[in-house]
């Protein structure tokens, strides 16, 4: 398997603040790679450097074996980008948005037309080709943006929060399209703050916070490593917390936030042992998720 993206000690500084603070990563061909984290963690900044819309402050970054500092033009010919703000051109219709963008890529008009038609079909937008883009729904706009990103038949597709703000149907549809693209051998890189989305579609993820990587790996492995199988979650009266924590802390790992306790149940352990120790009328046993990994590693405090 060959490497499509490699970052070494990647740094991005805005106004003397490192929003990306020494990131190392490797993304393999054909992989769906997720960059996860809360708002302001540095996800978008990291990705913007990868797709050559933002200069690297320091460190090294190679995309498809090319250095982003010296070869951005050649990189941009081989990648497709679905940015967070879709940047569709309100001055043009759906079809013309694709044709004008194809011009930027220097795609001959005839080929651009065939390709645009084909992509509109793939994205289920063919009957809307004459509509002005500001009359489209959020899901349709996102699909059109994906079609636009595919015009130059890219090897890597970057998607910055592709499902944020979409309804469940539209979101499901985008996931299907991404799975389809993966089957066609494209490498996908996406950012999201929906952990559930990442668990579902990413082969490998990094969790970042404050510009640094907290952990890296396959979603299932990370859940296993940091949390386990299940989470027992319950609420107590403030003055009872210490008492119960004393009873479980020998056997289980746990996290406390105010009067809410979460106990992490490993594969070999049995969740009911934890349950037996606790008297609370507000108790919940559930499967461990990436959310738990994230909250465990990054803590609870609110982000700006």
């Amino acid at each position: 398997m060959s490497i499509v993206i490699e970052a070494r000690n990647l740094v991005k500084t805005y106004a003397n603040k490192n929003v990306v603070d020494g990131i190392d990563l490797v993304i393999n061909e054909g992989e769906c790679f997720g960059i996860l984290g809360p708002n302001g963690a540095g996800k978008t900044s990291t990705m913007r450097m990868m797709y050559c819309s933002s200069p690297v402050t320091s460190g090294e970054l190679f995309v498809l074996g090319l250095n982003v500092k010296t070869n951005s033009r050649n990189i941009k010919m081989k990648i497709g980008v679905v940015p967070q703000e879709d940047g569709l051109d309100p001055d043009f219709s759906v079809l013309d948005n694709l044709l004008v963008y194809a011009r930027y890529h220097n795609i001959p008009i005839k080929r651009a037309r065939t390709q645009a038609r084909e992509l509109l079909r793939f994205m289920h937008l063919e009957e809307y080709d004459g509509r002005q883009v500001d009359t489209l729904s959020g899901g349709m706009r996102r699909r059109l943006t994906i079609a636009r990103a595919l015009l130059n038949d890219p090897q890597i597709l970057f998607l910055d929060e592709p499902t944020t703000g979409l309804d469940p149907q539209a979101r499901f549809w985008i996931w299907e399209a991404m799975a389809d693209l993966k089957r066609r051998g494209k490498s996908l890189v996406l950012t999201t703050h929906y952990m559930e989305e990442a668990e579902r579609i990413c082969d490998r993820i990094i969790l970042i916070d404050k510009g640094k990587i907290l952990c890296e790996g396959r979603p299932a492995d990370l859940i296993n490593e940091y949390i386990g199988d299940e989470v027992v979650e319950f609420r107590l009266k403030q003055d009872e917390v210490d008492y119960y924590v004393k009873r479980i802390k020998e056997k289980f790992q746990y996290q406390i936030m105010n009067n809410r306790v979460r106990i992490f149940v490993k594969t070999a352990q049995e969740g009911r042992h934890a349950l037996e120790q606790i008297e609370s009328d507000n108790i919940l046993v559930r499967k461990a998720s990436l959310d738990d990994v994230f909250l465990r590693l990054a803590g609870y405090e609110l982000r700006p």
Partner: peptide, 14 residues
Amino acid sequence: RQKTYDTILLAPID
């Protein structure tokens, strides 16, 4: 407002 330049910058144009 329209972010037109951001979009053009995604393509191989400086």
